[in-house]
Each structure stands twice: as C-alpha cells, then as structure tokens.
Write a protein that binds this DNA or RNA. Structure first.
Lengths: 364, 364
DNA sequence: GCAAATTGGGAAAGCGCATTCCCGCTGCTT
DNA sequence: AAGCAGCGGGAATGCGCTTTCCCAATTTGC
C-alpha cells in the first residue's frame, strides 16, 4: 500500500483535487466549512501525508536548510548545530546535514547537493582556509555558492566570509571577533604572568586559528611583551596532544620535573594558549602524562568555552563564545539581524579560571 | 535567473530531454559517445544541477535518511550522528536531522515530516520511555512508524524496539546490552569496594536508564550485596549535579568532610553509579563543590565512555560503547547486519579508571 | 429589478524529471 | 535481395501537488 495521495483524498471527499489542496494547506482561498470538514475527515481516515517533494516541485521551495560542518561530533559544531536546528524549527523547516572534514572539495559537493534539493538556505560553519593548496578548491566552492545565490539561495556563514565570493548578494555572515577576544585574553594573562608565552595553533592558513594567533600576539605586544612562539598542529584534540608533548619536553629540559617544586631559581612558568578548547584539553593531557601539573608547572588557556568541558579540572581559562546563538543567527532569515547581505556580530567574554591562576600551588 | 533545467540543457545540446536525462544520470541506456559529450558540455556550460525533488518525484525515492535525536549537542547523540552520517555518505544519501528532546509527540511529528519527504529510511536514536504519561504519545509514534513502514520505509532504532510497534516489518534494531554491561560493571566494582552503592538514574520509565539500573542491581546481587539506593533525576548533566548535591549532603553527614581524612572509624566510602557519563560528570562537579574528592571520598562510575570526557580527571570509570559504530549500524541497509527486520548487537567494555580506584589517596 | 461584482468550486496547465513505448535505421542472416 | 533483430533516439505520459483560469451561483449596487 503506497502512501495515499491528494487525489485519493479528494475523491473520497467528493471534491476536486484543487479544493482538497486548498483546505489541507494554508491557501489564500479557504473553501466552505462543511467542505473543509469533509476533506479533513477524508484525509484523516486515509492517513494522508502530503508529498513534500511534489509540493516543493510545485512551489519551488523545499523547507530545507542545509548545514555544513567539519564534524558533527566535535562539540563546537554540535553546539552550533543545536542553534541552527532551533532556528530551523522556528521557521518550521528541517535541517539537512553535511560533514566535510573541512575539505573545500567536499564543501563544494555539499553545496551542490543542497542546491539540487533546492534548500531554501544553507549555513556553512567550518572555518575557512587560506592555504594555497586549497586555493582552487576555495574558488570552486565560491563559484558554487555564487551560483546558488544567483538562483535565489541565501547563505549564512559563521566566522569569515567565503574567500572569493563574487558579490555580497545573498550572503550573510555572523562575525566572531576572534582577533579582539584573543587580544583581550592575552592582555589579561600578561597582567599576571611573568613567564614565557607559547601558542598552540591549528594548521597555518586556517583563518580562525590565524585570527586568534594574530590577536593573541597583538595583545602581548600591547602589554609590552615579545611575540610568543607558535606551534602549528592539527586543529583538534590530537593536535593539541602532540604539541603538548613537545612543550612537555621543553619544560622538562628547563628542570620543572618531579614533585620537589623549588629547584635553583625555578624558571618562570610557561603560559600556553591553545587556539581552541579541545586542543587545550589535548595539551593538558599530554603535559599530565609527563608528570607536569596545571597550573603549577604551566598555565594554559583555550578558546570557545565548550559546554561539556566546563567541569574539567583544573577549570580551563578560555573565551566564552555564544555558540548556540551563533548557530541561530547564522540561518538566514532568523534572528534579529539584518536580512540579506550584511554582518551580524556576536560578542564573547574572556573567562579566566583555575588553569591560568598565578601562583599555582595545588589548592584544596 | 532560475536554475537551469534538463530541458534547457537538451535544447542547447540539440537533443531530446529523454536523451539528456539518459546521459546525465546512470540510466541503463547510454546514448552514443558523441551525443553524450555534447550533452555533458551543454550541462556544464549552463551549470546544470538536477532538481532532486523532481527526480525524487519521478523515481519515488529521495536519497534522504532521517535521523531523530534528543539533542544534537549532547555528545552521546553527536557521536551516533557521526556514525549515521558516515553510513549515509556511503550510500550517498544525505541526512535530515530532527531533535525532539525525547518527546514522543515531537518524534511522531518528525517521523511524519520524514515520511512527507519520502525519506528512504529513518533512524531513531533517543531512548524510549515507558512512562504512563507518554503512553498515548508512544502509541501514536508507533502508529506513525508502522504506517511509514507499510509504505515501504525502513526504520533503524538504537537501543530498544519502539514500544507498541504492530509488526517487525521494516524495523531493524541495534541492540545495546545495557543490562549485561551494567551488571558486569557492578560485579567488577563490588570486587574492590567495601562501601555502600548508590545509583543516580534518569527519570523512571526511561528504558535505557531502567535497564542499566536493573543490570547494576543484578550485578550487585551476583556479588552477594544488597541492592543499591536509586536516585531518580534528569538524564543529563543537571540531573547528575542535583543528585550529586544530595549525595554530598549524605556523605557530609557521615563525617567525610574537610582535609583531615582519618576521623574516628571513617565509614566505608560510597560508590556511585551514574547511568551515563554526563550525569557522572555533573555529580562529580557537585561533590567537588562541597569539598569532597574523587576517589578519596567517593568512587564514581558512568556509562557510555563519551570521547570528549576521556581527558577528564580523575579519569572516569565507565562502560565503553562503540557509539559511532552504533550509529553506522542503525542506518538500514548499512553495516554487515541482517537486512530487514532483526537485531544487530554491539558489545561494550567495562573500563575501570581512576575514579573508582580503591584506596583513594590522591596520587601524584 | 437588472447589471455588475463577488463568491466558491472545478478543469487544466504546469513544476522538472524518469521512463515506457514507439519508430526509423543499420547490420545481419538465409 | 528480402526479412528480422537490435540499436539509438524522440514523443508522450505520469509522479503528486499548486495555481491560474474559468464558470456558475449568489450578492450587492443603483
């Protein structure tokens, strides 16, 4: 038994398909109450479910919102996805998910697939990359998005505008002040740390990472400090872990090992800034595996303020980002932002916690 | 400029729409190479993207997989979603996301929406509830799913079969041995713990929670111990936190407070089993906020082995579940499982870590 | 009281594509 | 050399729905 159709409902109710359509969906013209009732009853008894594909074809709009993320299991993207989902629900649309691991080629394919499905809008959440290796991929992605926009699609981008977009038409970006916030974090840390600073960054060319690094360096400069060393690694927990191992070796070489804290003129404690929370956690794990303790042997800060990580000990200093709201704002037509081209901004908040506390003796 | 159509491509290539269709999609009949080339070039120059809705209408299949979760930002669901996404990609389909906060009514609506979109299959990941308040909702959900199946849909369920399904036709469940694993966990913990056991459970009637509780109690019984006290609360971090506060009070009353460990005849340490990791983390936070330390003042174990939580300290004892694989297996037609009705099983693994270590003096 | 405007319903034309059927053609058999 | 299979392409139909257009029956205006 195939799903029943509008025509069947109409026949059962003794009306024309046109009338049935009018009563079952919010048409401008509403048939008489008696007829409406009859149709509704017929639909009910048949368990009629409109065929959204056919509706979409006829109306040329689908009620779909495409969402592109690197990895849905990454808590950063998961939080954004929650916001997108909430906004979609508000517009009563559904969200179509695509994960791309950040590959521009996959992103292009996802955009094409969304376009094929005639998604009303698409939000693309992963960080953009400016690596030369990705140059062609980025151009193709931009071309695909431009085409999508020309055909009437709306796209929301979180973070950075897509590199190489032809015009602003149809784009809408949620700006995250990564650079400013990182600078502020650096300044606050500089106020209480005497030691050297090190940055654990993502791959070079990853815009979000680059921005945070640049901001942090600027903050240090503002405080009259020399620029920090930058370690480039993967933008995930594993990357953080590897960098952490390297730093552990460095710290160990200086003599920060073992329980006995006070060696001859203990070198000032290292202060590590990982460009996102997950990397910070990885780095922490690495340091710990080498017997180092936070914040006694090194201070560490992250970025994002991932919810699941808030109970982590020592509590991680970070920059809180309203991830869910970012997701909500990123869907075109939602939020109080300007409709159409333009940038909606959100703000974050530097949140200092135990992992960067000065002193560093383990408290109770 | 609206997106170009097959007909336009055909006209540009000087062929009929039928031929164009044949070359641009994997039809059984492949037109001659010269014609094919011409069509392909025309399509390319027009930037033709097939209208998936129209294709779906014509073929009556959509290439969509519907996924229902409680909350996509919950790491448990996010991990499953990743698996589903991977399987979908393998079948080159896209996944449609719906979040329902566990409400059967919302789930029913989501199923209807998926049916309307003619999703090829749907996987429903949230825990089923047997509460009487949800009884009608569950029945309606089951009815909707049954109808979906009768119309040729395939549904994959993780955990429990949907309560009230009329027949097995079209269903496919990924069974998680919650009860057995919880029992095993209890037995292993019982072997090294002298103190009392307490269970922090989700709301009564939540099948996953109930299973884990039952299993844990059985494990205790196997070890010759009396059943543990059960605290029912929310199935999330907040629930765990609240229960943790209550337990902290209980422990405090016994005298486990402060730094000085050895009071007169220190009572045996409490061993807490939270039915999922996130709740365990919440409980831990609560205990800590009261000055209690894990595992010194209480042992605690969770369930799921959430990836993001693995770096948590003290490392959480838990039961590892192959979440991503569960997601993969849940999508009908994927995995090596039996196609059609049937249960595919996965196994987990009790993973004892520091949070339940006996002794409990803080190590280095 | 009659023309004009309004209402309420049906017929029909697509939306963009897949697919079945059909037809002219080439190449083969006997 | 005539007949037949087989192939390559096009015309036409239908997927399920929306929406314009059209027509008959009422209301309204003066």
């Amino acid at each position: 038994m195939a799903a029943s159709t509008l025509t069947e409902v109409a026949r059962l109710a003794g009306v024309s398909p046109a009338t049935a359509s009018r009563v079952l969906n919010g048409s401008a013209r509403t048939p008489g109450p008696d007829i409406a009732e009859r149709v509704r009853k017929a639909a009910d008894s048949l368990g009629y479910i409109p065929n959204a594909q056919a509706q979409g074809l006829a109306k040329s709009s689908s009620g779909l919102i495409g969402l592109i993320v690197h990895d849905i299991a990454d808590p950063y993207f998961a939080a954004i996805a929650r916001g997108v989902q909430a906004a979609a629900r508000h517009q009563n649309k559904m969200v179509l998910l695509a994960t791309t691991a950040g590959s521009p080629a996959d992103e292009r394919a996802a955009v094409a697939a969304f376009a094929a499905r005639r998604a009303d809008s698409i939000v693309i959440a992963g960080s953009r990359s400016a690596r030369t290796a990705d140059k062609q991929g980025n151009a193709e992605l931009a071309a695909e998005l431009d085409r999508y926009c020309r055909n009437g699609g709306r796209v929301g981008v979180v973070g950075h505008a897509v590199v190489g977009a032809e015009s602003d038409e149809g784009y809408h970006v949620v700006g995250v002040p990564n650079e400013e916030l990182a600078a502020e974090l650096a300044r606050e840390l500089a106020a209480s740390h005497a030691g050297e600073f090190v940055i654990i960054a993502g791959p070079e060319g990853l815009l979000t990472s680059d921005d945070r690094v640049r901001g942090f360096q600027r903050g240090l400069a503002d405080a009259g400090l020399p620029p920090a060393d930058v370690l480039h690694t993967g933008f995930d927990r594993t990357g953080g872990y590897e960098a952490g191992m390297e730093l552990a070796a460095r710290i160990g070489a200086h003599g920060g090992s073992g329980q006995a804290g006070a060696e001859a003129a203990a070198p000032p404690r290292l202060c590590i800034f990982a460009v996102n929370d997950v990397m910070a956690i990885g780095a922490t794990a690495a340091l710990r595996s080498k017997g180092l303790r936070i914040p006694r042997d090194a201070a560490i800060a992250g970025f994002d303020d991932i919810e699941t990580l808030r109970d982590f000990r020592p509590a991680l200093s970070t920059v809180r980002l309203p991830l869910e709201e970012i997701g909500r704002l990123a869907v075109p037509g939602a939020g109080s932002g300007t409709v159409g081209a333009g940038t909606v901004g959100v703000t974050g908040e530097v949140t200092l916690r135990r992992s960067t506390e000065p002193g560093g003796e383990p408290a109770s």
